[in-house]
């Protein structure tokens, strides 16, 4: 049931997701970072729900439910659990500084618009900017991973990149074949579990999650 309402809603949710990732770039503490990831996942679930509603695709409904269950309830809970167990300091060391990060994310957004110019020309108007948004969410989250010093912040960055990716996939072609999405979900889940395990190990051997210590492997 395609209607102006749903297409507007889709755009709004996508923009909110971008907003969440830009805000994530701005935070300097861990807890708000995870909370922003949670918000972004909520928007993503809502986005999927509206797309499912407008396209009448049964499997996107399931996708929306799974996103909500895993990314909103399970993963943040795990991250918090990890954060408490390894008693990591809340302070997040930024190598670029907040103003720098903001400028960086703005530049990345402009870049993704410029880069996806040929791509956007071929698309129908509806999906046009969702693709660009997913593009920029991915670039921003990778740059977040590159500028934050904490191991857990890297995990959050990775998860946000996944969100951006799924946003793009669903926007462009009503999601990939179901087994693919299922596989992708499980992959993400597995990644988080294993990263959790290694975070414990790092904590045990380095007694801190600060990545600066991870520098013993120098080439002499």
């Amino acid at each position: 049931m395609e209607s102006i309402l749903t297409s507007n809603l889709i755009d709004i949710f996508a923009v909110c997701m971008l907003l969440a990732s830009v805000l994530a770039m701005a935070t300097t503490r861990m807890h708000p970072l995870i909370r922003l990831f949670l918000i972004q996942s909520i928007f993503q679930a809502a986005f999927e729900f509206t797309v499912a509603y407008s396209q009448d695709e049964p499997h996107i409904y399931i996708m929306a439910v799974m996103t909500f269950v895993i990314k909103v309830l399970v993963i943040p809970k795990m991250l918090y659990y990890i954060m408490d167990r390894i008693k990591v300091t809340d302070k997040l060391v930024l190598s670029v500084g907040v103003p720098g990060s903001m400028l960086l994310s703005a530049a990345l957004i402009m870049l993704s618009y410029f880069v996806s110019e040929p791509l956007v020309a071929t698309l129908a108007t509806a999906e046009r900017n969702t693709l660009v948004l997913s593009f920029s969410i991915m670039l921003i989250s990778i740059s977040m991973m590159a500028t934050r010093r904490k191991a857990v912040s890297e995990v959050v960055g990775l998860l946000m990149a996944e969100n951006g990716l799924f946003l793009g996939a669903i926007a462009l072609s009503n999601g990939m074949p179901f087994i693919v999405e299922l596989g992708a979900f499980f992959d993400v889940l597995m990644a988080v579990i294993i990263v959790g395990i290694f975070a414990f190990r790092i904590n045990k051997s380095f007694d801190s999650v600060d990545d600066t210590l991870l520098r013993r492997m120098r080439e002499e």
Binding site: L111, A146, R149, E219
Partner: peptide, 20 residues
């Protein structure tokens, strides 16, 4: 540099460079 951040930076820069 052995810091994982720089490696992410390299991946990002290559991605951007190739796209441009």
């Amino acid at each position: 540099t052995n810091r994982i951040q720089t490696y992410f930076g390299y991946v990002l820069i290559t991605l951007i460079a190739v796209l441009l």
